[in-house]
Amino acid sequence: MTLAQIQRDFCAFIVAAKPDIEPAIAVDAHRGLAVYHHAFRATLIACLRDTYEKTAAWLGEDAFETAALEHIAEHPPHSWTLNDYGDGFETTLASLYRADPEVEEVAWLDWSLRRAFDGIDSKVQDPIVIAGIDWETAVLRLAPTLVMRPMVTNCVALWNAMAEETTPPAVARLGTFHALAVWRGDLSPRFRSLDAVEYRALRRAADGAPFGVLYAELAADLPNPDDAAAFVGGLLGQWFSEKLVIGADPG
């Protein structure tokens, strides 16, 4: 038997206990196969539990492990780094907990914070360059780790309660539009809520819309157009101070 065939059969055993490997191993080696079979699952469950720490706390150990095993069965690892293995687990949770959307939302927050932790660094542009830019056509440069999405539940309150190890509130569906942004400016990942106006503006910026267009759209939402400069200037100042926006490029 070639090494390639032995290795394929070995993988089939540790993933799904397929016995094709047995002729290749020594006669007294079967209990060793079980060690590798167990270690494969244990490593991946531990990885998911570490990455999705608050999700595991929300679901409880048994339910989390059941979900992890289901994910492992359907998604064997392919990346060289375990850091990637959590990718898509929130989708598995969404399919397992269709009636409980807070599970997938807490999981998305766990995963996004983990990705931001060691994602690409934000290199803030020189203020002198920014000051000299034509803002009408400029395109905002967002933190490279920034991800954002709408949420339908009070998942942030749940996540925070588990982070602080306090009793979480009851799950609630939000009555108004609510989105969440996750990014890393310096060394620590962070997140905060966005209302509909800010979310739409950041989404348009992420899509490459010129700042002049963003300005006009934000101004159009205001009851008094004379407030536009102060309102948009305030938003931009906040984004820069949070390193959610790290520069601007000529359009």
């Binding site: 070639t2 090494l3 394929r8 993988c11 540790i14 494969f40 490593t43 991946l44 392919h78 990346s79």
Partner: peptide
């Protein structure tokens, strides 16, 4: 691992001339 699969474990090798 092999063929793109990664077990994230240190798996044993046969000690043969081919290997």
């Amino acid at each position: 691992g092999v063929d793109g699969f990664n077990a994230h474990d240190l798996l044993p090798l046969p000690y043969t001339e081919e290997v």
